[in-house]
Design a protein around this nucleic acid. Structure first.
Lengths: 187, 187
DNA sequence: GTCTATAGCTAGATAGAC
DNA sequence: GTCTATCTAGCTATAGAC
């Protein structure tokens, strides 16, 4: 693993903004350069394998962020399950900026992207599933029910982000987060 | 409206395949040419405004297909509501080839695409919502419930397609269609 | 480690023969 | 209406000065 200087994180954040909004093919080196404040040649110094390595770093960064924030909140045994769920959903709200951001999985899973990043996207989604299964079990659902609920959560989050974008209405995303909470807590 | 020769439809189908799998920026004129069997210059003869007009035609084509098949099945008063729902979902299965196809709305709603096609995507999604609201009302849900259910359907279809792609498992899409049917018929 | 400059290529788009 | 040939601009990527 490369050593993480302070500046590195700022670069990754810039790359993330571009890839998540434009997708893999839509993200040009020029725009990546502008978003990071590094000239193209400097980006290639940091990422010798070019654009693919940059997108790869973005996926790793988001994966870490989700682990450290979303999953950490959901699994933190200092709180009771209901609170953990609320906190986890709150982190998800932050991750997608209340519905304004698109999901990196979505952005990088069109044809060209999925061919390059299939493994990471696959692994990432499975981690969402297994973590939400755990919170379901903690909330006293049977393992099989918890598994189904986890899949439902993943689908609803992804779907609501697409519909939010298509209709230009972030209340759709917000309502979906509320519905997810209710589905877990009412039964 | 341009006169629709037989060949025109084949061209649109080729364009659709490319745009839906690669997105707007990912679809190159070369690939569009290969998929349609027309050289680039010939494509420009048919679509003087270039790539944007081609994607526009794809959106119109899919919109028509959905109207003639999905919505027609859902609204056809020759059948009772339960049957209409089943038939509509069956058409949706065809539209997305059982989960193998991505949705054109999704493919064309990344940054570059949404800027160009916002209006059509917005309109298209709203037609899904209003049609599914109608089938909900026909199944005796209150208008407000029917509206919520319609939104839920749109979200679940879009989300399941994303997750299906990300996990490479078309049973996810199939299960979602089954769940949608149950949600309408059990209550 | 960052930059300017540029290579090599492919993109979208046109001109003009047939 | 379709084609070959070509234009320009933008792309990813690299060379080499500092």
């Amino acid at each position: 693993m490369r050593p993480q200087k302070v500046l590195d994180k700022e670069i990754i954040i810039g790359l993330t903004q571009v890839f998540r909004s434009r997708g893999y093919e839509g993200a040009s080196l020029q725009e990546l350069s502008e978003a990071t404040g590094l000239k193209k040649a400097s980006l290639y110094h940091r990422f010798p394998n070019g654009k693919q390595q940059m997108a790869d770093a973005v996926l790793n960064y988001i994966n870490e962020w989700v682990n450290d924030n979303v999953f950490q909140a959901l699994l933190n045994n200092d709180f009771e399950p209901k609170i953990r769920l609320k906190n986890g959903l709150s982190q998800i709200r932050t991750l997608y900026d209340g519905g304004n951001n698109t999901c990196v999985f979505r952005a990088l899973s069109m044809q060209a992207g999925i061919e390059l990043f299939e493994e990471q996207i696959n692994k990432g989604m499975n981690e969402w599933l297994s973590t939400f299964k755990k919170i379901g079990v903690a909330l006293n659902f049977k393992p099989q029910e918890a598994e189904q609920k986890a899949m439902q959560v993943l689908i609803e989050i992804q779907g609501s982000l697409i519909v939010t974008k298509g209709l230009g209405d972030i209340t759709i995303f917000e309502n979906t987060l509320k519905n997810i909470e209710h589905h877990y807590l009412k039964a």
